[in-house]
Design a protein around this nucleic acid. Sequence first.
DNA 1: CTGAAAGCGCTAACAG
DNA 2: CTGTTAGCGCTTTCAG
Lengths: 339, 339
Amino acid sequence: MKATIEVIAKKANVSQMTVSRVFSGKSKVSEEKQKLIKKIASQMDYYPNLIARSLSARKAMTIGIFMPKTKNAFLDIYISQILSGITDVVQNFDYRIMFFPFDYTLLQENLYTSVAKSNLIDGMILLKTRINDKGLDKLAKSDFPFVLVNHKKYSSKYNFVDSHNEEGAKLAIEYFYRLGHRNIAFVAGLMKETNAIDRLKGYRETLKNLGLTYRKEWVVYGEFNKEKAYEKSKSLLQTKPLPTAIFCSDDYMAIGVMNRIKEEGLIVPRDISIIGFDDIELSSYVKPPLTTVRQPIYEIGKKSAEMLLSLIDGKAKAPLYELLAVELVVRKSVQKIKN
Amino acid sequence: MKATIEVIAKKANVSQMTVSRVFSGKSKVSEEKQKLIKKIASQMDYYPNLIARSLSARKAMTIGIFMPKTKNAFLDIYISQILSGITDVVQNFDYRIMFFPFDYTLLQENLYTSVAKSNLIDGMILLKTRINDKGLDKLAKSDFPFVLVNHKKYSSKYNFVDSHNEEGAKLAIEYFYRLGHRNIAFVAGLMKETNAIDRLKGYRETLKNLGLTYRKEWVVYGEFNKEKAYEKSKSLLQTKPLPTAIFCSDDYMAIGVMNRIKEEGLIVPRDISIIGFDDIELSSYVKPPLTTVRQPIYEIGKKSAEMLLSLIDGKAKAPLYELLAVELVVRKSVQKIKN
DNA sequence: CTGAAAGCGCTAACAG
DNA sequence: CTGTTAGCGCTTTCAG
């Protein structure tokens, strides 16, 4: 016989509600009855049907995580660390996690909304969404709780957690400058992501503030991966004069650029200095070890989960946002310019 | 007004079932009615309540993934790649994914069973479970579909996907042997995981088959991470004679051992040769690049999902298992022994 | 602290 | 192809 609240209630000679209360813990039941009910439940190997609970209580106790399914997907250490942060927080509050990796090339406008209305989840965290994503605008029109990670969008309806990308770019460029570099190139990430845009912005503004001229041929547009950066940085190494320093939008890209530089017979940092962004595990292992702007990725994940949970509980209201600080991690890929 | 099947049915002047059929796609509805229903639904921005669907249909269309939440959790590239494989398969079949990272130090015997009975998921994949896990035995007593990844257990109730660990160890040891090594040490992984046990077994048997003697002080027991391997390999480097080659249970461990070796003033591979296991991304970046036994990790993930889905659909019956082939990836961390 | 009634929104099963 | 009936197993709500 299948164990349900009803069956247990009958055996214990109490109402279903009493049994329900014992397992949901939402209100008090006499010690005595509790003991009896638990005993019967354990004999029958009863565990609550959480789907039924969700339907009835109109609460899934689950959050959804959406992320673009790139070639790397989970392999992307960036995403991995964010997931770690989210998980750690969410579990403390007894929420479960549902995953929604999706393909940006096939994205339907209604993906987010349809899941929001499915009652499967109580809120969602969206990783690495893009600026031209119409589904986001649609979602924002509902009052479903959601938080963007790595997508900075100030608006009364959006909540986000991101790191201080412009500041990070500034840190990198100023460091180059202090070491004597004046010819500083930039390898940009996918311009559909706000952090790519912000890093470019930081690059340009810092050049300006430092009195350096912006040269179009020293900015090259890639995607957030090694291969594309390798490909796109070729033209950079054919400009005259050659840049003496290259700032890359992330560490994988920096590795791609370093590969290209080696292939051209040049040496990092002797001929060209490099700075990346993120501080992924690999960065300290490449040769030379990569100087980079560290993002507190795990913290971003944690923060986004905390934000979402407070939105779900109604403890806070949109718009909520937070920009976390970054720092420069100095390793060996940058060299002083000799005159 | 909240959009539900009932409301739409009334507006369209049809029964709830007709509306239900349109959205579940499980049987035919006339073109005409379908159009009308879809139109109304779209006007109302209706999307099915999937929780209600699950309760009624007694099917969650969701699988669960359980994994020990180590310090690395998702950072663990191994797990990341498996998740990638699982995701790719599962999404093709319109299943969703729910995550259950858990802490092995707090593990309650009933975790798996309680989730199995929660109706939240239709089946589960368990990553890196341990041999002394009583919850597993309990789960096996039910007829809930589950697949173990990296836990080889032949029994009529268990399904698993793993790689050929003993064979991998054999590949490594024989390669050492062919290059003249006779003094071969082993850094073992956590002996609570079957793959650690199997690799040790492969090591010992291959030594035996090759006529080499097994020396207790040349086997050291760590965990699957850099730090522990670094710590535990110390004693290895104080034995006399020193081993000329060390086989490590995974790549992170190999990196830890290499760090230790460097610290002792020795050089890999000049003084000591190293082979790892897994072929993680880092392995080709460390210095020297690591020779290792490659596991088809992504494939393991895919296979486990396929297995689980066929179990859920009833297309196959337990026990199901598969051992995937491994291969030696030769890089620069092994050197020929000169006499 | 306990219970009765009603219903969450959907689909299975059957009938036509 | 369409409809009716009867739940799925729990919790909300209200009453005591």
